[in-house]
Structures are given as C-alpha cells and as structure tokens.
C-alpha cells in the first residue's frame, strides 16, 4: 500500500504533535476517505480539515494523488 506524507498546519500540527504524518492508503482512495482516516488520528474536537497539494485544495470526491506533497488544512484564520 502506498505510504503518503502529509504536512500538518495550524492546530493540526499542535494536536498531532508533529509537522508530518505518514499514512498508508490504498490506491484510488478518495480525499473524503483520507480526511476521515486523518480525523481518526488527529482529534480536532469537531474542527473540519481540507486536504491540498502544494498548489491546489482538493475536493472530497477527488482521488487522492499519490505522488504529490500533501497538506492538511484546518479552518483558516489569517489577518
């Protein structure tokens, strides 16, 4: 099974305790399925996460790209 490395941002990093999270996921895993798996590992108390490549936020029905740098994005609060 492919091993994917996710970069964690904001409160996901603090909650998980590391900047990166490595997860084995089967090919053709959807973004939604990956989000559910990640939320099992990162207890965010109801906060939602989005997944992204280096350049694009992924939609839940997208198939997770296996050869991209992946990011976990909690709710944003810039400014």
């Amino acid at each position: 099974m492919p091993s994917l490395t996710f970069t964690l941002y904001g409160m996901t990093q603090a909650t998980y305790g590391s900047r990166t999270l490595i997860l084995e996921l089967p090919e053709n895993t959807t973004v939604r399925e990956a989000q559910i798996r990640l939320l099992e590992l990162i207890p965010l108390d109801g906060q939602a996460i989005a997944l992204a490549t280096r350049t694009q936020v992924l939609k839940p029905d997208d198939v997770l790209p296996l050869h991209e740098d992946l990011a976990v994005l909690p709710p944003v609060c810039g400014g």
């Binding site: 409160m11 603090a14 994005l73 909690p74 709710p75």
Partner: peptide, 27 residues
C-alpha cells in the same frame, strides 16, 4: 491558508479558531 497561534504572557499558547475551507470535512 494562514493560521494564528496566540502566545500568552504566561508562556501558554492557543491556536485561534477559524473558517473551514469549502472543501473541508469534519469528524
């Protein structure tokens, strides 16, 4: 995609809550 962590005088820190992106999924 920017996130704020407040650093307090007592040394504690807290990430501020924000707005989920439209593609986000909760638990």
């Amino acid at each position: 995609p920017i996130w704020k962590c407040e650093v307090y005088a007592n040394g504690q820190e807290a990430w501020l809550e924000g707005t989920p992106l439209p593609e986000a999924l909760a638990k």
